[in-house]
Design a protein around this nucleic acid. Structure first.
Lengths: 140, 140
DNA sequence: TATTGTTATACTCTATAACTATA
DNA sequence: TATAGTTATAGAGTATAACAATA
């Protein structure tokens, strides 16, 4: 395969993924800032400590303290004492926080679904296949 | 097509595009901040006025003034008097700015190319087809 | 003594409001 | 009088350094 074709494909894949991400984000509700939503989304599956979140989101511990405090003041997350280590805190999503996350993700998916129903079944199959390939790409 | 399958596909497409965007950005050089690079990338094709950039990037005129001034101080863009309207300024990429843009885009594409060469020709064809579909999706 | 989290402080990016220059 | 851009000022988000509590 010629190098220039590979470069063109690399550029196409990169750009179209960026555009999809931007469109989805733009269509989203803006109830909380992006960095705040990232924390809420992580807490959806299990409780995290502030330190874990800071490392995962690649921000400093003081920044995460601020973000978490803001979410706690709005009643979206709850700080609970760690059962075994008195230094740590466990962060849980409150019912209100959980509802906000599900509502926002649903809005994102709704926008994409509306685009997908307008495609042919063949085009949707192409996307299914491409998702599998791209998952492999980002896993590396 | 069942609604739950459509929802699953919407979620898959959305998430994998977001992950690709994140990986590409993470691999990028960090010579300038993202919002600054966005301006440099726009100036690659033609000169823009500060007002046009503010509207395109969805930031306020004062914010764009600050961003442009920062880039100008670093010698990456140049402000030139508008030939017809004395109120406006035309912004041009300097040779240094142009080099920075091409270098960064090249780094992005290089990362993606390295992932693509590890795929089969069939997988690459799947991505080519998917790019065409997704371009249609984001155009709506 | 090391680790987890917070407080203190400063810098950057952003915005609104007020101002200058030009049309 | 309207428009393009800048300056003034303030509000978020981030970081590093210093501190408190616990292991």
């Amino acid at each position: 395969m010629p190098a220039e074709d590979l470069l063109g494909l690399a550029n196409d894949v990169r750009m179209v993924c960026l555009q999809v991400s931007r469109r989805v984000r733009f269509e989203s509700t803006t109830e909380v800032a992006p960095h705040q939503f990232a924390v809420l989304a992580k807490l959806r599956r299990r409780p995290w400590t502030p330190g874990e979140l800071a490392e995962a989101e690649r921000v400093s511990p003081p920044s995460m303290t601020r973000t978490v405090n803001c979410l706690a003041e709005r009643g979206l997350v709850e700080k609970v004492a760690h059962p075994e280590d008195g230094r740590q805190r466990m962060l849980y999503l409150t019912p209100a926080g959980s509802e906000l996350v599900e509502r926002t993700l649903s809005a994102h998916d709704t926008w994409m679904m509306q685009r997908l129903v307008e495609l042919s079944e063949e085009q949707r199959q192409t996307l299914r296949d491409a998702v599998a390939v791209l998952k492999e790409v980002v896993a590396k």
